[in-house]
Design a protein around this nucleic acid. Structure first.
Lengths: 156, 156
DNA sequence: GCAATACCCGACTAGAACACTCAACTAATC
DNA sequence: GATTAGTTGAGTGTTCTAGTCGGGTATTGC
């Protein structure tokens, strides 16, 4: 059982947006730089996030992405399923035709598990993540890193 | 986020063992037949289950596999991690060096999630699965199917 | 109007993993 | 000594991930 980077990247990028979006739209280049994610790959993910109406985009200079609604209204679960990494531990995708068209021995178990995971991730919003101490700490470190790298580039 | 068949098959096979093991060792051929799993693939999985001391094997005619301890003492979590499908939602594998050797913005979130999933699966034993109504029902259906197929083969 | 910025979109790909399959071997029983 | 059944290792087709690449189009400021 593993979560791929697709869902992780999406949540990380959305959290970055929530943290830095106050001053206006944030570019993918900035997010890619701060979070160490390929910008081209982020474009793919944000295409999906936009289609799911979790973000809005602004083109042209000074453009970028912004959250489509309040951080309290965006759950981790919504982000993950919007990029196509829905939680599904069953074999059949919930249709209960796991074994030759009939239900398999462990269907209920996986169905339960999927439900639990979704419940957990639905309860966590971007706002609650922003409020966490460790997120604040890491975000601050990332901002300092970014500042330092910009300065280093200006000097070199 | 998905559970692969590796973990699912392992749990299903172990449950089959718990259901049919009362009369003595159960062969992989029987499990493969009842659960619709490739026998060759099951062999690989049972190699791991044996190394994890969740099952014991008996060679020769009348041989097969049996649970190494009581069904109450075997958790779904133990089965899944024994076949190498440990629950790990983090990128770094728990080492917190997710971003250039440092902790990433969402490490805690994935770490929490992994913990929750493991907690859920640790609380479920083979015994508790055997006691479930829907498991009894499906198991009974499978036994009838098996009986019918044996008879059909004898006639044909 | 024109250049720069930044989102938009589709096609392509190396590599990894999963889900097997095959073949040969050893141990136990009758 | 033949059959049963577990044991082991190597090989393989398919799918998915995690990208890359190359071209678009909309918006802004000069």
């Amino acid at each position: 059982m593993r979560l791929t980077t697709k869902g992780r990247y999406a949540v990380t990028a959305m959290l970055d947006l929530a943290l830095h979006g106050a001053a206006g739209p944030v570019t993918l280049a900035d997010i890619a730089f701060r979070q160490g994610i390929s910008q081209n790959y982020l474009e793919q993910l944000f295409g999906k996030l936009k289609r799911a109406r979790l973000v809005i985009s602004l083109r042209g200079p000074g453009g970028g992405y912004a959250l489509a609604c309040k951080p309290e209204e965006i759950s981790v679960s919504a982000i993950i399923s919007s990029v196509g990494e829905g939680v599904d531990a069953t074999r059949c995708g919930g249709t209960s035709d796991c074994q030759d068209g009939l239900i398999c021995l462990t269907h209920e178990l996986w169905s339960d598990l999927s439900h639990r995971i979704d419940e957990f991730m639905s309860a966590i919003s971007l706002a609650s993540l922003v409020a966490r101490d460790e997120v604040k700490l890491v975000s601050h470190r990332q901002d300092c890193d970014t500042q330092r790298r910009i300065e280093a580039r200006a000097v070199g």
